[in-house]
Design a binder for these strands. Structure first.
Length: 422
RNA sequence: GGAGGCUUCGCCUAGUCCGGUCUAUGGCGCCGCACUGCUAAUGCGGUUUGGGUCUCAAGCCCAUCGAGGGUUCAAAUCCCUCAGCCUCCGCCA
């Protein structure tokens, strides 16, 4: 949700932001018109209600005869107040509904355009040259089968398309990655959290996932609960309706949870393997901080993502995601993409977003400092999304016989330095 | 799933039976001021949140007693629905 004051004072900025995203700039003017109506109908109600309360006091003190006279005016006033209240509520709801449809203001400097208009900021590590090494790289599906780490056939049998079992060393690998990620997060002051995957509509809507992203969200109609696509949702909503002391910011949480995605509209994309699945586990970083500190915090989150990928010795690059490919909550987003040898390209493994005050306004998370109360900023970043990291490790660290070298940092958590075919 | 109890402005709490004097009591905490070798103590004042009005501030207005609806000229207070927490019973990992 955008600050109405900014919208009133600088509507051009909001229109430009909408245009950059490829969304409708006219929505800004609809919101402003609705807000105008909201304020005028509220003033009307306030005035009537003020009169009603004043007369109410007179009635209480009046003698019997006076009372009858007062009640004449007061009875018709009651009807007017009721009507004005209804009008006010309707106007407020409509203004709010329109305001919720507006995406966050894009941060200055974000590349223009859509999905393919990202800007590459950095490259780290060098992809291996398997031809020079004298063998052809196997893809993660094949390696996973050789190691007894991934069972896709039975995943499909039991759960349908895009479902999988991690088995044997595959399962252990995920647990080791989780521990490595959590250890790093704790080192930097994050509070480890295991979060609910099932949340109420307020949490889902407040985080901004029931807009254009809604088609990718699982909804349990019988209970009106949603399955989260990321622990960003329960972490953002953790402090819903709360006022946090400014001197305790930033507050950082690392959430581990299952993530569920319908993957609507991605038919035919990544149908092989576990690059794109309906359920996976993820360690997610989340930060509540002062708005003026958000850009710096965003860089810190990106830094911790890079540190994790470095520790796993993966070649990757960092991209600045274009305006048209940002989620509605994000003002800016950086993705880290790991090199996938058998695809010959970089694929997203982590993503960090600065949501500025957008989510905090919707969720009513505020900060208290001496000068008062105001919304704070929220940011999120992937630390370790299991399937894609497993894909990257298996493919990048494979040997000619199908074995996989375990990155040094992971060895204490896995207990072995080589995964061998079974 | 069934029965009962509870939910008040940071925390605790009065008020709810019997509607208007609630502009919500008191304590704790916190902030400011005064007094005082220092600290402590004491005294005085302030201290929910959101919206509006206003050039800004002050001031003023409206809403807010778990949420929503109803009765009434008038609701923290009466009625209905729902949620959360607690206790007990039943079932179950």
């Amino acid at each position: 949700m955008i600050d109405l004051r900014i919208l009133r004072e600088d509507p051009d900025r909001a229109r430009a932001s909408q245009r950059a995203r490829g969304e409708d700039p006219a929505l800004v003017d609809q919101v402003l018109a609705a807000d105008e109506l909201r304020r005028s109908s509220a003033m009307h109600f306030d005035a009537l209600r003020n009169e009603q309360r004043g007369l109410g006091k007179q009635v209480a003190q009046a003698s019997k005869d006076e009372k009858e006279a007062l009640l004449v005016r007061t009875r018709e006033l009651a009807a007017e107040v009721k009507a004005a209240d209804a009008a006010q509520n309707e106007a407020a709801q409509e203004a709010h509904r329109l305001l919720l449809g507006l995406s966050n203001l894009v941060e200055p400097g974000v590349p223009e355009g859509g999905e393919d208009d990202y800007v590459v900021l950095e490259e780290h590590g060098r992809p291996r040259d398997f031809a020079t090494e004298g063998f052809e790289a196997r893809d993660h599906v094949e390696i996973g089968r050789l190691l007894g780490a991934i069972d896709l056939e039975r995943g499909a049998k039991v759960g349908g398309a895009r479902q999988y079992y991690l088995t044997g060393v595959g399962a252990l690998l995920e647990l080791a990655l989780c521990n490595l990620a959590m250890a790093q997060a704790v080192r930097y002051g994050f509070t480890p959290m295991i979060t609910p995957s099932l949340v109420k509509p307020e949490a889902m809507a407040g985080t901004g996932f029931l807009g254009q992203a809604a088609e990718n969200v699982y909804h349990l109609a019988d209970d009106d609960l949603y399955l989260v696509g990321t622990s960003e949702v329960p972490l953002a909503a953790y402090h819903m309706d709360e006022i946090l002391p400014a001197d305790r910011l930033p507050m950082r949480y690392a959430g581990y949870s299952s993530c569920y995605r319908r993957e609507a509209g991605s038919y035919g994309k990544d149908t092989r393997g576990i690059i794109r699945v309906h359920q996976f586990e993820k360690v997610e970083m989340f930060s509540f901080c002062a708005p003026e500190d958000a850009a710096a915090e965003h860089q810190r989150l990106l830094g911790w993502e890079k540190e994790f990928l470095d520790a796993l010795e993966l070649p990757y690059r960092v991209i600045d995601v274009a305006a048209g490919d940002l989620g509605s909550s994000a003002a800016r987003k950086y993705d880290c993409e790991a090199w996938i040898p058998t695809q010959g390209k970089y694929r997203e493994v982590t993503s960090t977003s600065n949501c500025t005050e957008f989510q905090a306004r919707r969720l009513a998370v505020r900060m208290r400092e001496e000068s008062g109360v105001r919304p704070l900023a929220t940011l999120n970043g992937t630390l370790c999304a299991m399937p894609r990291i497993i894909v990257a490790i298996l493919e990048n660290h494979q040997l000619a016989d199908g074995s996989v070298t375990v990155p040094e940092a992971l060895r204490p958590y896995l207990g072995v330095d080589l995964l061998k075919p079974v």
